[in-house]
């Protein structure tokens, strides 16, 4: 550290114009990816858990629920895709809550950038995790004998739809992440919500077998509709109404919870 260098570096400080909303968000996405680069074990939960789910449901319950594992794999794989990716969204809230305990958030919040950029960026980074989780499931499914009727194109569309919905749902958990005190509290509250919603959907069982009121709930559950739409896209017989409901729900969740999260992030002491 010499005085001359110090003065030189101070005298040459640039005066750039502010970055665009997109550029700031992508930069925060880059931050998320750097963290994965430094601690690749972070990807364990998004790869290992889905693998366990696929194996467990196919071989443990497949015979009992659908009569044969092969048949059940056709039904269950799109469902497991939905479930695994949606479970991963809880971690967006957990990691935001962890971030908040660090001093660097104060610096981010004092920067002249588009206010939601740190959040949008973090969720963009998380979407990459969703993509990894989804890809692992599809590849494993194919290895176990799953043959999607609509081929690669259908799978890619289904994956895209699930990730869009997951991105929207993450805003609910980032809101939780800002409201609750500890990462553990966020995790517990998150799973307490997402667990029953996922199991009370058509992800695992055909709702035709259910009693009336339960069937009504399962039919109206957006997660059921997302699972049906994914199945449809992968099989090539999707109903456009399902896609519309999924995208509409995603838009609604984002419209409600993204501004709420941004507001809480800005005002949190």
């Amino acid at each position: 550290m010499t005085e001359a260098r110090l003065h030189n570096v101070l005298a040459t400080a640039p005066r750039p114009r502010r970055p665009s909303a997109l550029s700031a968000s992508l930069t925060f996405g880059w931050r998320g990816m750097l963290k994965v680069k430094h601690v690749p074990e972070q990807l364990m939960d998004v790869t290992l858990t889905p693998v366990l789910f696929v194996l467990m449901f196919t071989y443990l319950f497949g015979g009992a629920i659908a009569g044969s594992t092969a048949e059940y794999l056709d039904y269950i794989l799109p469902g497991i895709l939905v479930m695994s990716v949606l479970f991963t969204t809880v971690y967006s809230g957990v990691s935001l809550n962890t971030d908040l305990t660090k001093g660097v958030v104060d610096r981010f919040r004092s920067l002249p950038i588009w206010r939601p950029a740190p959040l949008v960026g973090a969720l963009l980074g998380d979407s990459l995790r969703y993509l990894v989780a989804g890809t692992v499931i599809v590849v494993l499914g194919v290895a176990l004998g799953y043959r999607p009727g609509a081929g690669v194109g259908g799978v890619v569309l289904a994956l895209a739809l699930v990730i869009v919905f997951a991105f929207a749902l993450s805003w609910v958990f980032t809101t939780l992440g800002l409201l609750l005190r500890s990462p553990n509290a966020v995790m517990n509250a998150g799973f307490t919500g997402i667990f029953p919603l996922t199991f009370l959907s058509n992800v695992f069982v055909d709702p035709e077998t259910l009693p009336g009121p339960l069937k009504a709930f399962v039919d109206a559950n957006p997660i059921s509709i997302l699972a049906s739409a994914s199945r449809g896209l992968m099989e090539g017989n999707v109903e456009s109404a399902d896609i519309a409901v999924v995208l509409g729900t995603a838009a609604l969740l984002t419209a409600l919870f993204a501004p709420l999260t941004t507001h809480l992030y800005r005002t949190r002491t």
Binding site: P19, R31, K35, G103, V104, L111
Partner: peptide
Amino acid sequence: ASVDEELTGRENLVLLGRLLG
């Protein structure tokens, strides 16, 4: 400390530079 502990020193400064335009 208002720097990101999970990044390198260089990454921290590049990140800030990008965020400042």
